[in-house]
Amino acid sequence: MKLSFFLSALLAAAAPVLFHSAAHACAVCLSGSADDPLTDAFNWSVLFLMAMPYTVLGSIGAFLFYNYRRSTKRASEPSARTTIAPLTWIHKESGR
C-alpha cells in the first residue's frame, strides 16, 4: 500500500520529464516548435554559450595547475633542498 503510493508519487513527479512534449503547458511557445530553424539555432547558441565558461575556466585551471606543478617540482629539486636539510639537521642536533 505504502510502496504503491510512493511509486505513483514518483511517477507523477517524473511525468513532466518523461513526457515533456505533452506536459509543456505553454500558452505562448510560438517559436518553440522543434522543426523551426530558429529553435534549432537558439539551441546551438545556448549550448555554445553554456559550454564557454567551463571551457575558459577549465583551460585556465589546467594552465595554473601545470605551472604550480612545475614550480613545486623546481622547489623540491636537490639544489633547493640542500639549504633546508642541513638546517633541519642542525636543529635536531641542538637537542631542544
Partner: peptide
C-alpha cells in the same frame, strides 16, 4: 563568445 553566440543564432536560423 557573446558575439559568436549571436552569430550562431543568425547563421543557423
Amino acid at each position: 563568445a557573446g558575439l559568436i553566440g549571436a552569430f550562431i543564432v543568425f547563421r543557423l536560423a
